Computed example of a mutant assay.
Amino acid sequence: MGQQQGVSLFLYEEKYLESLLAFQLPAEQAEFTGLPSDTLESAMHDINKYAVVIVHGDMAVGFFILHTGEGIADFYGPYSHAMLLRAFLINYASQGKGYAKAAILQLPEFMRSHFPAVHEVVLAVNEKNTAADRLYSRAGFCDNGLRRMGKKSVQKILQYSLLGNQTAMASQDGELQLRLIHTLSQSPILNALFTAAQSLEPLPYYIGAGCLVQTVWNELTGRPLNYGISDIDIIYFNDNDLSYAAENKVVERAKTLFSHLPFPVDIKNQARVHLWYQDKFGIELRPYSSLEDAINSWPTTATCLGARLNSDHRWQIYAPYGLEDLFGLIVRPNKALIDEGIYYSKTHKWSRKWPELHIASW
């Protein structure tokens, strides 16, 4: 139990059942969440779901579900120490009294008390649900750019660290970014690549994961920095022209820009990947909304990585799941897009080249 401003959080007990099943929401709110009558039974039969009741006095005024385990990987790849908050609502009759804000503000204390092994709470909020977005942001949830496609529209993935020292975490992330930049800068081939790629500006682009990740693995395991690299991936985004002809112009330009490199360069417009992906891989793909959206779906947490060196010599790094797995030689699945077979096919290939890798199970 936790308390703040007269509101308490309790793990579900049967005494709350009748009042929860009587909850109601107007249609404009029900569009974004499910009533307890829709979600409670499923939570009661899933060992990885915990129903939580928001209580004022002795009356249930709100409800949400905490979901853990592999079932949340589609929402959040690094799920092992995270819980997903879902189906959050305040009964319509109890709205406008500050209960939602009070409940969210005391959530960290509740989590530390009941789930001490959990390091992070995450949630998905519809981009159109601005009221909920404001509520969660004011309570300390952070928007770090993670997105997923929901049933109706794009959802933001908001994150709240429970480790208690977010300054230290930010410092550690900054240190790993500096370490990454130092490692990439030690490679003559990558130096030439990043310098040549500046000619692509102002086209938004990233150098993709493969050559970056493998360079780091090589540095960590004492191998030559270009060991195991067979090609270089560059991604860009242009949703104004999705034709093959427009993309091919960029491809032909890249052949000239990168002709001095010892590896072939594959450059693709991520705005048009959905047009050919199903035919090639048998998986239906929704259109990406940005370069970052594309990187969010790449197959492992360590390889969800893009980097560029801007013409003003500032580095731009995008790593939605952080860099700890990369520098820890940990390969962990990101289930946003791939299936088990694809994951093990990739990890088998990588582990043959880098046997030091720690391959997480699917």
Rank of each mutant, 00 (worst) to 15 (best):
Q4G: 00
Q5K: 14
G6E: 10
Y12H: 06
K15D: 11
L17V: 02
E18V: 06
F23A: 07
Q24M: 10
L25C: 09
Q29N: 03
Q29R: 13
F32P: 01
L35H: 08
P36G: 06
S37L: 13
A43S: 15
A51W: 05
V52Y: 05
I54D: 01
I54F: 01
F64C: 05
F64N: 04
I65Y: 02
L66A: 05
T68K: 14
T68D: 01
G69I: 03
G77M: 07
P78V: 12
S80G: 02
S80H: 07
L85D: 07
L85A: 12
R86Q: 15
L89F: 11
L89Y: 06
Q95Y: 08
A100Q: 06
I104Q: 00
L105Q: 07
P108A: 09
S113V: 00
S113Q: 14
S113L: 12
A117H: 11
V121H: 03
V122P: 04
V122D: 03
K128S: 15
K128I: 00
N129C: 08
N129S: 09
R134E: 12
S137A: 14
R138S: 14
G140Q: 03
G140V: 00
G145D: 10
M149I: 10
M149Q: 14
G150N: 02
K151H: 12
K151V: 09
S153W: 02
V154E: 09
Q155K: 11
I157T: 00
S161M: 03
L162G: 07
Q166Y: 11
M169Q: 15
Q172F: 07
L180T: 09
T183W: 04
I189G: 01
T195E: 13
A197Y: 07
E201V: 05
P202E: 09
G210T: 09
T215M: 04
V216F: 06
N218F: 04
E219G: 02
R223D: 02
P224E: 13
Y227T: 10
G228Y: 07
I229L: 12
I235W: 00
N240F: 12
A245S: 14
A246H: 13
A246V: 03
K249G: 00
V251Q: 11
F258H: 02
P262F: 06
Y277L: 06
I283A: 09
E284A: 13
S289W: 01
S289F: 04
L291I: 13
E292S: 08
D293F: 10
A294V: 05
I295L: 13
W298Y: 15
T300F: 08
T301N: 08
T303R: 00
T303G: 03
T303M: 06
R308S: 08
R308D: 05
N310R: 15
S311Y: 02
R314I: 05
I317K: 04
P320E: 05
P320S: 10
L323F: 11
E324Q: 14
E324H: 12
R332Q: 14
P333Y: 12
P333R: 05
I338A: 07
W354T: 03
S361V: 09
